[in-house]
Design a protein around this nucleic acid. Sequence first.
DNA 1: AGGCAATACTG
DNA 2: CAGTAT
DNA 3: GCCT
Length: 543
Amino acid sequence: MKPCLKRAERKMRIEKAQEYGATVVFTFSNTVTHIIADKDIKYNEILEFLQLTEIPEGIAVTNPRWPGDCIRYGKLVDPKDFWYQVPGCPTESQQRNPLQDAPISEPIGGHSSLPSSPPSSLQVQPRPPPKQQPETPTNSQKDALDEAIEECLTTTPINIEDFLGSSSSSDTESSPESSPKRRKKASSSSSNSARDWQSHFQCMHKHTGALNPENPNSRTIQILEEMMQIYDSLKDQWRTRSYRIAISTLKSSNTTYISTYEQAISLPGVGDRLAKKIVEIVSTDRLQRLEYAKLDPKDQILKLFHGIYGVGLVQARKFVAAGYTTLEDIKKNATLTEPQRIGIERYSDFKQRIPREEVKQHGDIVSTALKTIDEKVQSHVMGSYRRGAKDCGDIDIILTKEGAGVEELHEVLEKLVEKLFDRKFLMCGLAIARHDDGTKWHGASRLEGEGKPWRRIDFLVVPGEEIGAAFLYFTGNDVFNRSMRLLASKKGMRLNQKGLYKDVVRGKNREKLNEGTLLESKDEKKIFEILGVPYRPPEHRIC
DNA sequence: AGGCAATACTG
DNA sequence: CAGTAT
DNA sequence: GCCT
């Protein structure tokens, strides 16, 4: 539609389409198979422009997201999916309108003509042609193009503005920042902001990890969790973090059904994109990105590879780029570190969950061996075991002794490891302290018997004085820990596995400039106290 | 635009 | 040091 | 992903 080449972005799109084998024509003929309309062009305008009364059978009319998705997913995605529909498109076979179940309360723009009813309500309002996209003057075309495609992909198809009666917003399909309605954050917190600014930290609230089917948002939560799973498996830690936070607030607001954009975006941790996703889930009962992500074979392989101990996102991507598709491929052809080699060898073992009872057995074996080395050294099983989990991903064991320092305990650790290897309990080491003051040992252990799976086991050396901080750290869960640490740093303190420190001087970006002075390290509860966090037993530290 | 926890081990 | 793990 |  209206292929004016002076818009660099559109030109790039056209070129990209051609690159992928499309034939682009500027005049309508019977060779046309798809009509791609700019985002803010309405169906009737297309008819007008083409001087047709209806689009012939078999010709797809889509918005620019469609070619973008095709490239993205490496196949021709269904142009009839509602994401790709042009506003005002005749809803032939009951094309669900994304917002029909989610009436927007009080549109901002003042107009209230929602396209929730059939297209008749969508009168063509002759609009000015799309505004010029202020092109970024820098960068090569390729970069700008990639950005444009990315934008197209990430811009949610439900253009709220269209539905709110955009007065004339200068929005184009790029620039997600142009979201006109910024949060009302500041206004809501005038009097009580000082008091509850810290209540946003997850460590302030009790969680048990139990899901609440009563929550009216359970379906939304379920889908968002799946999406988070995918980002997590792709090691996209920041997106994962955002999803986790958003899901968490959704869980806590278990009295209201969040169904509109306005409702959603007013929640802390829910921004423009997640709000749109929530609306999408509520109105369509699914999430398109999720469905494609589930299918994308590249992601599947990436997930497979990054599941290997010692293989992170970077390595996994390299393996995929190298064309490997199976663990066998990698084992044979790739250059691996020793831990990675073991990681592949024991891939299925390490993926298995460990029953709580077995964790205990491993702990007992360690504990028993320890007694023959030094009576006074204690071992404690930490991690999800301490949180009461029915099964665990690995086994975390703290070695400590009243009054002992790292060096003394490190010696004990070495003896212990040797002894346990002799007993055929330990099967391999994966990451072992280099120095005498090393504090951790990662490896694998196995119960008696050939068929038993190898288990990931970690030993952690903890001086007697630091036992409280260490307990806190190694009990987790990770989210809880990060939350506690973030809170500490916002209060001018620093929390790590050794203790809680004050007077930490931080430069810009919260960069740590000095160590600070120790406040507490031996008593777990006191650390909670000093931070002003209500104490929570391990089983309530699941965020 | 840049942070989002903080630290230890590998190669 | 970058990458990985906790 | 969101927030400052």
